[in-house]
Simulated assay, not measured.
Amino acid sequence: MLDALTLVTGVAALLLAAWCGFAAYRDEATKDWHFIGMAVVTLLALVQLVVGIVQLARGEDPEQGTTIFVAYLLGAAACIPAAGFMSLAERTKWGSLTVAAGAVVLAVLEVRLYDIWGG
C-alpha cells in the first residue's frame, strides 16, 4: 500500500473534521464549500481503493488478510459520501457535526488500513 497516499488521506480527513467541527461550533449547516472538501477527501479515498485493488491484482498480499483489507477499503471509500448525504437531511449544525464525525472515522480507518497492510 502506498504509505504517502494513506497519510495524505488521513490528514485531509482530519482537516475536514476540524473544518466541519468548527462550522458546527458556529451553529452552521454544511455549505457548498464543505461539499467541495468532502469531494476532495472522497476522491483521495477512491484513489486509495483503486491502488489497493491494483496491488492485490498484482499478487501483493496484506499482512492481516485480503478480505478484511478490501472491507476496510470499501468502508473508507463510502464513509464521507454517507456522512455528506446524512448532512443533507439535517440542515443544522448537526449536519456539520455528522460530517466531522464521519471524517474522524475515515482517519481511524486509514490508520487501520496501514496496520492491516503490514505497516
Score class of each variant (00 low, 15 high):
1 M>P: 07
1 M>G: 03
2 L>H: 06
4 A>L: 07
5 L>Q: 07
7 L>R: 14
8 V>S: 05
8 V>K: 06
9 T>S: 10
9 T>D: 04
10 G>V: 04
12 A>D: 05
12 A>K: 05
14 L>V: 09
15 L>A: 13
15 L>P: 00
15 L>M: 05
19 W>F: 05
19 W>S: 02
24 A>Y: 01
27 D>A: 13
28 E>T: 10
29 A>S: 12
30 T>Q: 12
31 K>M: 02
32 D>T: 07
32 D>N: 15
32 D>G: 05
36 I>M: 11
36 I>Y: 13
36 I>H: 14
38 M>T: 02
38 M>L: 06
38 M>K: 09
39 A>T: 11
39 A>N: 13
39 A>Q: 12
41 V>D: 00
43 L>E: 06
44 L>M: 02
44 L>C: 04
45 A>F: 08
47 V>E: 09
48 Q>Y: 07
48 Q>V: 01
50 V>N: 13
50 V>H: 10
50 V>F: 14
51 V>H: 06
52 G>H: 13
52 G>D: 09
53 I>Y: 14
53 I>P: 01
54 V>Y: 08
55 Q>G: 10
55 Q>D: 09
57 A>R: 12
57 A>H: 02
58 R>P: 01
58 R>Y: 03
58 R>I: 03
59 G>C: 08
59 G>H: 15
59 G>M: 01
60 E>C: 03
61 D>E: 15
61 D>H: 11
62 P>Q: 10
63 E>Q: 15
67 T>A: 12
68 I>V: 13
68 I>D: 09
69 F>W: 10
71 A>W: 13
72 Y>W: 13
72 Y>F: 10
73 L>G: 08
73 L>P: 04
76 A>R: 04
76 A>C: 02
76 A>D: 00
77 A>D: 00
77 A>T: 05
77 A>G: 02
77 A>N: 04
78 A>Q: 11
79 C>D: 01
79 C>W: 10
80 I>A: 01
80 I>W: 01
82 A>H: 11
82 A>K: 14
82 A>P: 01
87 S>M: 13
88 L>W: 14
88 L>M: 11
89 A>C: 06
89 A>K: 12
91 R>K: 15
91 R>Q: 15
94 W>K: 08
94 W>N: 08
94 W>S: 13
95 G>F: 06
96 S>N: 00
96 S>R: 04
97 L>Q: 03
98 T>M: 02
98 T>K: 10
99 V>L: 02
100 A>E: 00
102 G>A: 01
104 V>K: 07
104 V>M: 08
105 V>Y: 07
105 V>I: 12
106 L>D: 00
107 A>C: 09
108 V>L: 06
108 V>Y: 01
109 L>A: 05
110 E>D: 10
112 R>A: 05
112 R>S: 06
113 L>P: 00
113 L>Y: 03
114 Y>A: 09
114 Y>S: 05
115 D>A: 12
116 I>A: 02
118 G>I: 06
118 G>H: 07
118 G>N: 08
119 G>Q: 03
